[in-house]
Write a protein that binds this DNA or RNA. Structure first.
Lengths: 316, 316
DNA sequence: ACACCTCCTGCTCATTTGAGCGATGACCCG
DNA sequence: CGGGTCATCGCTCAAATGAGCAGGAGGTGT
């Protein structure tokens, strides 16, 4: 990379040749004829131009997406898709909107008319649904029950309905909470026609969008909604992340929990059967949970922001 | 050039492929295998990456030389060599030093042991001589007589002697003024052994370095040294530039003058016979003279600064 | 539903390109 | 001056590449 091209005449000649080759798209043979050189000489000049740094090649997208980081993350974690949105902004609301839009673009790009779409409960999923443009007429399946938030403005049922409406496909949805007080109630709820019908579609789901939570206060809506004893119990079981209700440990293993029996939602096995699961996490604090989710192999697509991506890579 | 690559997944894929191709130097076949694509698809992705501006290729030298401008000037005026030094600085003294150094580098690059070097009188030539490193042992020939400047610190004789000493070759030099009061004296001087011997070498000179002056007050040492009647006479003859004593009009034609008979220096024909003549002009005011000199075909190499180069191109 | 239409994909063949090789020439040191 | 050393140059052959073409999928407008 040291500037070892030669004297100034050599530098100018090298630059001219490199310009013709890289910018004007001429072949080396043409250039050789034009400059009265052998094509080998031209090739060596071009090599020298690259080695010396005279020719600088940059890959940079002028949109919101950090392509280099995206590719790096995708490569590092063996993902089918990774979209890293470059936004300095770290307000949760704004972040969610940006990621939602990016995820919507990604989804509408990868979805085909033969897909069956699954949507889990998450604010980021709702944000995505809001930005989603026209989709082919595909079935949309609700993956989890609903969780009420203090300032509740979205819920998965809306998202499923909205997306199904936008696509013109069938909507498999149900009205039930994500968690219930006891396993019996959960079993009963699962027997309900709408729930059973919806969960019966799970094996056919080919693409899903989920959220990821870190099993800590304020980092998972499920955690925040759980009783203290469940919080502690799951922590003791080594739960690190919840992927829209599927619990995994820091090393990516699915964790069996009592809480799961009291939940109305997709299981780890069912999620693993889905060919492509896209997660939309945000906030650097969630890095350990996202790492766990990626290690688990349950998640094959990631839409997030630069800060979290860096956090993932720094200690990944 | 519009960003028409597709959705975010497409963008990331395109960027990954482009990175492998341009930065990692992989072949398209390798990339196709790695990504599970056809090599045609890879080629199209790479084309798209270039067209969309995702891949940006810049050619920029991190030294003093503006390679793009140099190439442009060289191309525009059909020169063998053009070196444009990028210096914001426009103090004549400093400019001369920079250009002198660049010209010295150029000369030491293009000179071969079989060359015969001619040096004209000019401050820039002296500046070059000062920066000139070791040269092969070649003969050095003085092309013109000397002109005394008010604050005289250099003269061509010194330059010739210095260069010859540095190269270890023979020095053909003489001590005579550039201009004398009458043609008879000039003829007599040309008969002098040293002068005759030196001028006898002119047909063998293969490379020469000269200065360029604009035939106006303060833009040519020859003009400044001339009598008012000569100044006017030459202006009426359409003289635009003097190339170390060779007068040319704005359209590049050599101009026959009375003054030439009273000068001890190289003629237009002799200069035209030299395969490579390098000029080292500076100062934007001289642009018309440099254009004339380039048009004349007498000068085939140019070493100058960005401002003058731009001035040349703006109205070239 | 049907035909059309456009875009996308992958093929073939001719050209371009890269890696390695021997020859030539310059340089260095005795 | 002469031998050794090194870099540079252009060639050969095989792989890589680009241009043009035909088939097919998906979308669209009656």
């Amino acid at each position: 990379m040291a500037d070892q091209v030669g004297g100034p005449a050599q530098v100018v000649l090298t630059a001219s040749v490199a310009r013709r080759y890289y910018l004007d798209g001429r072949s080396k043979v043409e250039i050789a004829e034009e400059f009265g050189l052998s094509r080998f000489k031209v090739a060596r000049l071009i090599d020298a131009a690259r080695d010396s740094g005279l020719v600088r090649i940059e890959i940079h997208h002028q949109g919101e997406i950090d392509v280099n980081l995206s590719a790096h993350v995708q490569d590092r974690f063996g993902l089918q898709h990774a979209i890293i949105v470059d936004t300095p902004d770290d307000h949760a609301e704004s972040l969610r909107q940006h990621l939602g839009r990016a995820a919507a673009e990604l989804l509408s790009e990868v979805i085909t008319p033969r897909d069956v779409l699954g949507l889990a409960w998450a604010r980021s999923v709702s944000a995505m649904a809001k930005s989603l443009p026209r989709l082919p007429g595909i079935p949309v399946v609700q993956l989890t029950g609903a969780l009420s938030l203090p300032n509740d403005d979205d819920c998965s049922v809306d998202a499923v309905r909205d997306v199904a409406r936008a696509s013109g496909g069938r909507a498999f949805l149900f009205y039930a909470p994500f968690t219930v007080p006891d396993a019996t109630t959960a079993r009963a709820l699962r027997q309900q026609p709408e729930v059973a019908r919806t969960f019966g579609q799970l094996p056919f789901v080919t693409k899903a969008v989920v959220g990821v939570g870190l099993w800590e206060c304020g980092q998972s809506t499920l955690y925040d909604a759980a009783e203290e004893c469940d919080r502690r119990a799951l922590r003791h079981l080594g739960v690190c992340a919840d992927i829209s209700g599927v619990f995994v440990s820091a090393d990516g293993e699915a964790v069996q929990t009592d809480l799961a029996e009291r939940m109305i939602g997709i299981t780890a096995e069912q999620m693993r059967a889905i060919p492509e699961v896209i997660a939309i996490p945000y906030g650097t604090a969630k890095a350990p949970a996202v790492r766990a989710a990626l290690r688990s192999g349950l998640v094959s697509g990631l839409v997030t922001h630069t800060a979290l991506a860096h956090a993932l890579l720094d200690n990944g």
